[in-house]
Amino acid sequence: MHPPAPPPITAGAAPLPPPLVSAPSSTPRTASGRRQLLASSSSSLLLLALATTSSSRAAERGGGAPLVGYAGPVVTEADRAASAAVSRRVGEAVGLLERGRALQAQGEFPEALASFTRVVAEYADLALAEYARVGRALVLYEIGDRDQSIAEMEDVSIALKGYPEIHAALAAALYADKHAALLAENQFAIATLLDPHYTDLAYVRDTKHWPPSLVASLHDFITLT
């Protein structure tokens, strides 16, 4: 009996795919390859054991678990002491600054001046010393040398450029004491652009606690008297 003949290939029909041939099995490892694999595994296990032992010993010496994956600097006792010293100095300076402002609000201008001056003299390396210079300049305008006060205002207006209070105070002083109307207008424009409250005399008197003489100078500037 003859096997059935394959169907004829008609024109335009795709040819039948070739029969699948199973891939040969992978070549078994040789004895040499097995020895290399065993040697590599043994080396890895030995390195892991050594690392674990070193980590455990370090933990025993340090009195705690080892830090995993941390390679940053260790904070020493000297670092902690330095940080505590800076925090203490900042706290002292803030306390003096707030005390000066409270004394200024109570009208105790000589005591306020002393407090502001201490901040400027003893904590000049801190940024908040510039704000103490603002208070010092305002109080000097009331009880000290007005020329010195204005000079300090000008310095601080550069160091704290954009701080509206110093620009408003300088505008009042320049107008009333230096008769520099144009410079005063420039300073006041900066101040009121940043904080429109400085057009209100009650605000500088009751909220900012400006000295009476500086409030009067601002009044003269606003009213052009």
Rank of each mutant, 00 (worst) to 15 (best):
P24F: 05
T10L: 08
S44I: 08
R29N: 09
L20Q: 11
P17R: 08
P19C: 02
T30L: 06
P18F: 03
S55V: 05
S55L: 13
A11H: 01
L37Y: 08
T30F: 03
R35K: 05
P28Q: 08
P8Y: 01
P4M: 06
L47V: 07
R61Q: 12
A11S: 08
P24H: 09
P18D: 13
G12E: 08
L50P: 06
G33L: 14
S42Y: 02
P19D: 11
P8G: 00
E60I: 10
A59D: 04
V21W: 03
R35I: 11
Q36S: 08
L16T: 00
R29D: 13
L38R: 11
A5R: 06
P7W: 00
L16P: 00
S25I: 05
S54R: 04
T30W: 05
A11K: 04
A58I: 15
S25T: 04
L20M: 15
A58T: 12
I9Y: 00
S56F: 15
G33C: 13
A51G: 14
S55R: 12
L16Y: 00
T52C: 07
R34V: 07
P17G: 01
T53I: 10
L37A: 15
S26D: 15
A58L: 15
A31I: 14
S56N: 10
S40C: 06
L46Q: 11
A23V: 05
R61E: 14
